[in-house]
Simulated scan of single mutants.
Amino acid sequence: MASDENDVVLSFNDSLIRKSDVILLDPPNWLNDKLIGFCFEYFEKERFNHSADKLCLINPDVTQFIKLAPTEELGPFLEPLNLPTKQYVFLAINDNNDATQVGGTHWSLLLYIRSRQEFRHYDSSSGSNKETAKKLAYKLQPHVHAPMGRMKFIEMDGPQQHNGYDCGVFVIATAEHLCREYCEGFSISLNDTVTADTMQEKRVKTRELIYKTAEEFGAIYPGS
């Protein structure tokens, strides 16, 4: 019997992945917040759990709230994340700036590095999300305890996509690479490991990771 697209493939901490989400890993689909959120949660809680005290990979839903919510509401909302204690804070940003609308058309990655007191923006379609990312950085500044007046925002010369649908995959791959670099001393450059040519492989590996995690954590999934 064919499984329904609403069937749950994986339940992992706060992530709930359905078959309809997994289907998005087939090109030319645009990855949604559920897939990016799972990868971020897996990196923090499993893949790089040896550095959990340093890392915070914020769920895209939370990032969207930070971006659109009134400033006065952010303090109590962000307090459980313990951002002032984290050395590296990752946020996946989309270009939807309308609180009444769902979705968007582009993802990029924002990283705060405490030791350098700077936000770095990695955009696989250079410049597309720059203004959105900069506004988010300054909105987040007091909540990561970045020094006023000295914080920097840098648009990075990162890997670039060659199509209109791989931006989310670039966000996942870039975040993973940077976690390896900062937490494990990985020394190969970002632009050598995250390229347009490796995105299809990353889609396949992300699908494999979802099913492997489902098996490991005893989640119920349809199996096809």
Rank of each mutant, 00 (worst) to 15 (best):
Y88V: 10
I172Q: 10
V204N: 09
K152Y: 09
S189H: 15
A146R: 01
F170E: 03
K134D: 11
F186I: 12
S108Y: 02
R150W: 11
D197T: 13
G164S: 14
V169Q: 03
I172P: 14
K139G: 10
H162W: 11
H121E: 11
P142Q: 07
D98W: 01
L190A: 00
M156D: 10
T100A: 01
V204A: 09
L83C: 03
G164N: 14
M199F: 02
V171W: 02
Y112E: 06
E181W: 14
H177M: 00
N191L: 02
K86R: 08
L74D: 06
A92I: 07
P80C: 07
R114D: 11
L83T: 04
A175Q: 04
G168K: 05
D123E: 12
H106G: 02
T105E: 08
T193Y: 08
K86D: 05
S108E: 09
D98R: 01
D157H: 12
I154V: 15
E118I: 04
P147L: 05
S124K: 03
P84I: 10
F153K: 06
K139W: 03
T195G: 10
D95V: 00
G158Q: 07
T132M: 02
N129P: 15
K86N: 10
R150A: 12
N94D: 10
K134G: 06
R120P: 14
T85R: 09
V144N: 06
S126L: 09
Y165E: 11
N82V: 05
F90P: 15
P159K: 04
R203D: 03
P159L: 04
M151I: 13
N191T: 15
P80Q: 01
W107Q: 09
E184A: 14
R114K: 13
G149R: 02
G103S: 05
G104R: 04
K134M: 11
A146L: 01
Q160D: 06
W107N: 05
A99K: 07
E72N: 14
P159I: 08
L110C: 12
E184M: 15
V102R: 01
K202M: 05
L109P: 15
G168Y: 01
T132L: 05
V102Q: 10
M148R: 12
M148Q: 12
K152W: 07
I172K: 11
Q117M: 05
D95E: 02
S128M: 09
N129M: 03
Q160F: 04
F77Y: 14
T100G: 04
E201R: 05
V144R: 05
R116N: 12
S108R: 08
N191S: 01
H162V: 12
L78S: 01
K139F: 00
F153Y: 13
T174K: 03
H143E: 00
N94P: 14
Q200L: 02
V144P: 13
A173C: 10
V171R: 01
K152N: 10
K130T: 15
E181H: 15
I93G: 02
L109K: 11
T85L: 00
E176V: 04
N82Y: 10
A146C: 08
K134W: 09
T85I: 04
E79I: 06
K152P: 11
